[in-house]
Design a protein around this nucleic acid. Sequence first.
DNA 1: AATGAATGAGGATTCATTCAT
DNA 2: TATGAATGAATCCTCATTCAT
Lengths: 217, 217, 217, 217
Amino acid sequence: MGAVKAKRMPRAVREQQMLDAAVRTFGRRGYMAASMDEIAELAGVSKPLVYLYLNSKEDLFTACIRREARALTDAVRAAVLPGLPADRQLWAGLRAFFTHTAQNPDGWAILHLQARTHGEPFAAEVAALREEMVAFVTRLIADAAREAHRDPDLPEAEVAGLAEALVGAAESLADWANATPGVTARQAAATLMNFAWAGLGDLMEGRPWTPPADAEG
Amino acid sequence: MGAVKAKRMPRAVREQQMLDAAVRTFGRRGYMAASMDEIAELAGVSKPLVYLYLNSKEDLFTACIRREARALTDAVRAAVLPGLPADRQLWAGLRAFFTHTAQNPDGWAILHLQARTHGEPFAAEVAALREEMVAFVTRLIADAAREAHRDPDLPEAEVAGLAEALVGAAESLADWANATPGVTARQAAATLMNFAWAGLGDLMEGRPWTPPADAEG
Amino acid sequence: MGAVKAKRMPRAVREQQMLDAAVRTFGRRGYMAASMDEIAELAGVSKPLVYLYLNSKEDLFTACIRREARALTDAVRAAVLPGLPADRQLWAGLRAFFTHTAQNPDGWAILHLQARTHGEPFAAEVAALREEMVAFVTRLIADAAREAHRDPDLPEAEVAGLAEALVGAAESLADWANATPGVTARQAAATLMNFAWAGLGDLMEGRPWTPPADAEG
Amino acid sequence: MGAVKAKRMPRAVREQQMLDAAVRTFGRRGYMAASMDEIAELAGVSKPLVYLYLNSKEDLFTACIRREARALTDAVRAAVLPGLPADRQLWAGLRAFFTHTAQNPDGWAILHLQARTHGEPFAAEVAALREEMVAFVTRLIADAAREAHRDPDLPEAEVAGLAEALVGAAESLADWANATPGVTARQAAATLMNFAWAGLGDLMEGRPWTPPADAEG
DNA sequence: AATGAATGAGGATTCATTCAT
DNA sequence: TATGAATGAATCCTCATTCAT
């Protein structure tokens, strides 16, 4: 029992081992329930070494968030070819997104659940990721409008809301796909394309859904 | 300093005070970071009384989840009149949903963030709520198809995915509306109707978005 | 759940109910692990009433010790007829002792285990009981000597030791009989008579066991 | 005031210090009344270190029981030379027993009082010790019979009872010797030899005490 | 580069006991 | 006679973090 004295390794490698252990532990236990003891043991090093390299629990968690956020955006970015039509770009991005979240459930749990649940400074960290995703979607909506030679005539706030909705739907479907056996990343992506793209198209054609002018409005 | 000795009150009243304090504390600090000390102080009673009435931190949190879930579903249910067309029902339900989450940010934080983040037995508790929301949306989709005299011909799994997407979009918009000054519940609801309803309509008319048959599929 | 409001009863009766509950609880859980809550509930009254009548946990436990000690000595005393020969008196006393301890395991646990384990003022309380038992045995030894027209020539300290040994053996056999199915009070008493009486006889006949004069003496 | 920061020591040493402190505290205060705070302070270390090494109050107490039980049986075993006649073996064992209990009153209190009073898992721990003592005595009785070329013709259950009685008498005399100034281990052992050995001798010679055939039998 | 030894601070939980009625 | 409401004070235990080597 007890890890044998760890072989000397270059710092960069050790740090990755620690981050691996931390992502797994934070993702499964949650930020607060995860203990530095467990992380150090899983990483196969002593606790003081974790502190020497990563400084504190807070810094360690922040490093996890950053690494996982970067991995996710890299995966999506790599899948999206700028030249394609907007819907094909979205389709490619969504498939990469669902594939990545399915393959990295712990990282996804950190980004989607843990980081948002435990206030500052973590919330700010994921807010950046979310903004990037929203910006990506916003750009696609604009591209789509341009492709259709349409002036969508959608106020900026409205577009922001739509992007939020799309991202939220994607997040929700990622959880659903992870929790439901037999649902592939491709299916999740197709579901979301169906759900979202037609509505966006209608909007851009100037056929929005109009609320009834009832008393409660 | 220090709370004055609490005046005697009937148990039922005290319990509500405790739940109020607990919802607020859990909602802001999170389940683990919230301390029973802080909850008791905010409720204006001593810690032992909290334990006498609510039993344990876990039970207290569960009671909070149940109370807030019930308040939310009651608000939505009260707003939806069964006789109306499906889109009007959805519209009414969404407005009630966004209104309630805007007025009860702590309760919403508990349901949407805290309860999901801290595993069993809390996750099961909110899962029930989510299933209810998904079932509600699923029923509306079916109603809409019937109203249009259409056989939507959508496989059940597909409908489930759509419902998940819609609910996820709603959750996301609730957070967005809470965080963005100047966005009303009505606007959030309208955004979601626009986003979702047209896409659903297209689907039911048999015009789904079709994925390209590329190599990566 | 929750005892119905207790019917008014004369104080003496209520006190006995409380003592019954306390003896049972203290005997099974131990002095410290027993809670006033549990005792009150088992007695079917509210906690303040227990305090009103018995004053404190310490006083309540002391009252239990006294009652059980008295019950035990009364049982033994009632069984011993003063006129009989010493061995018959001992035989009768032992049978009464083992019968009583078998029928009152909780009371016996209090006297034999709990009261001795928790220091003053309880230890003093049982010390009195033990002294009474030792005195009884001491008297019987003297009687036996007189009956045999012998001067046992045993120093007082020696007799005290023998009495302690006999009482200790009895206590041990009581536990053994309670824990071993199929061992009756009569058998336990016979075992002890066999074990003890012959040795005492030899002693009084001037045939003691003599220790070897070894180096370690 | 307050313990100075403890100097660094190898774990094995620290553990023994902790066990020393724990035995003393548990022996005097009792298992439940002893607080981990007090034990840590007496050991000269901080509480977390006690938990780090000994795990929990329950484990700490169990470790105490084991250590003290082992010390006692080792002391007795070392004193008994297998080749000697049975009565000399018993004499040697008893002297070692009374010597050890006199020199380790706290350990003896743990074994004889505390461990038995607080239920499982402690009772099981001392039960093993007691069985060993009973087995030792049982073997001596059989040896004695063999030496006398006698068939003791005692049923097994009867022998078990006699052994229990002897062990109980020894336990009782250990307490008595500890509590009575001027009583040496040698005297206690001699008293018990006198008390027990002659009776056993008579039994093996076929002269048991016979109970009267009275009505109550 | 790496770790065994050590702790300050705090958190959940329980309990004997009292007050007001 | 009897109780529902309430608490001060402890207790067990855990954890992030540091020091000396």
